[in-house]
Design a protein around this nucleic acid. Structure first.
Lengths: 134, 134
DNA sequence: CTTGACTCCGTACCCTACTCCGGGGTTTAT
DNA sequence: ATAAACCCCGGAGTAGGGTACGGAGTCAAG
């Protein structure tokens, strides 16, 4: 424990082995150390990195955007002010998503509440709120 | 005003005309009324529906999931209890996304805060939080 | 009544993000 | 020491979500 094979890593993060290699090609994962045989060896922290990528995707970020998020950590080619500016832009993104999600939640909660669970759906109050969110 | 051409609709909702026709094919938009010439005529409410689809995509929902969300409104083939059950499942999805987004926001806020905006990024506190979110 | 912008439809093409394949070495458990 | 299971790499294939094309009809302004 401390060094994982690509298969162990993939299993731990619940992704396909091919996906791990794909992310490496795309620069989302650093090229890992290799054994004499050429086999990749990953530090166990890579699991959380993969999970981060996965969850970010579920939140509607593209791989390119995720790469940008990851790049906010260590980038010797940009000043701190630049990092700050980019982080703020991502934050704005996130705030927008949060607002939309809360609106969606509100509409659905309303639907679940109004709908007793009995009778045909034709009797269910129609949720126009869902479309008139903005 | 009250009836839009496909071009007017697309412009109002900020999407491509081809996308509108694509959504129609995929069942995300109902087939609209037609003029004698065959031209599509949309009620202006379709604009908000397109915007809903757009924002839902940005939140990481697939077109299929979005169709399911839209189907929660009017579905004569399922009882109210069923609608309720599905709405609750979507709500759970949304809660998960909200939780992840808040965690992400927290990490980025921390980064922006810690980073004064001066000096090289090497001096910037590294945001390990970003990866260790869960 | 003509001209430029718009629309129709079907088909083809594109990008993203994987996912699989195949021929070949490596590790590991028995 | 020999399978079974794993890993290597390059390259091809796939699904989802559009986007573009092209030939033909339509509409609105001048």
């Amino acid at each position: 424990m401390e060094s994982l094979s690509i298969g162990q890593l993939a299993k731990a993060a619940q992704v396909n082995v091919e996906t791990v290699r794909y992310y490496e090609r795309e620069g989302l994962l650093p090229r890992p150390a290799r054994r004499a045989s050429g086999y990749r060896r990953y530090p166990s922290a890579t699991v959380t990195r993969l999970q981060f990528i996965k969850r970010s995707k579920e939140l509607g970020f593209s791989l390119k955007e995720i790469a940008e998020l990851l790049a906010l950590r260590i980038d010797p080619h940009s000043g701190c002010a630049d990092v700050k500016r980019r982080a703020e832009a991502k934050l704005a993104d996130i705030e927008r998503k949060l607002t939309d999600l809360r609106r969606m939640r509100r509409a659905l909660t309303q639907l679940v509440h109004d709908c007793g669970g009995e009778g045909p759906s034709s009797a269910c109050p129609i949720l126009d709120t869902l479309e008139g969110l903005r």
